[in-house]
Amino acid sequence: MIEILMNIGFGLGVATFGFVLQTAMGGINRKIAARLQKRRGPKWYQEFIDIFKLLSKRATSHGWIFDFGVIMALGGIIGTAMFMPITSSIVAFEGYDNFFIFVYLIAVGMLGMAMSASGSGNPLASIGVMRALTTMLAYEVPFMVVVMTIIKLTGTSSLTGIAVAQQTGDFNWFMIALPLGFIVAVMSLMGMLGKKPFETYIAPAEIASGPMVEYGGKQLGMLFIMHEITIFIEVSLFVHLFLGGAETIIMFLIKYFIVYAVLNLVSNVLGRFKIDQVVTFFFKWPLFFAVVQAMIAIHLGWVI
């Protein structure tokens, strides 16, 4: 019993860590982007300030489902983050960090947010949700094919298991072992993070921030927290799957920073796709590459 409570406390620690890490990373990357554009940019802790300001403000609510959805969203994401390993040994629930939990439990959070947004009664929010779900359908399929290839190769769907498999030398880092798959995963990750060119569902100038349009105050603050943790989950997932995980927390931070910063830089020079372009894009080359990679790796056994 005590042990379980300890684990849960540990998990909550991981979630908090993720939140702090990503919020800081977000701030730093805003700074980097600004410097590239010859601006000064905000302070690196600006995002913390934003979130705590929002949390402290009195907000409006559109009914119980509006609030309930927010709680469900944040709760789902915190729950997911609690399973996330940071290094191969720092993991709250050892052995239970199944890949599918991250894909599906994260969906609870997404669903909660979508529900809450739709419950606000604003059509722009519904359009945003529609676009978000459609984007999800697009990026998730090629990504899952690549991950399934990895699971097939390593024989485990445990995230630490996959990381360990790369560390012990059974496999190279999968970014090297499965180069095509890695490219696909990068594109998918950009979709997951809602970075340009796949940020169609937020599209600030077009649909008034989409799902977020009706939020303010603590609800918006909570959704920001949720958003930061989501990004933490997705990027760490990528680190564990393709970059060999991390033996130490320092390595984790370095890898995390590199992935996030590179993606951020790439996205800053790209424009925005239309929503049907997002779908056709992902179902064309990324899916094709993913399938080719899977064929090569599984049926021919060619893994570098």
Binding site: I8, L12, A59, G75, I78, M82, L105, K218
Partner: peptide, 17 residues
Amino acid sequence: VFGVGVFVAFLIFIVLK
């Protein structure tokens, strides 16, 4: 864990204004 997550979220929600 999901329950804990929701509980935490609920706590955040309820203590705020």
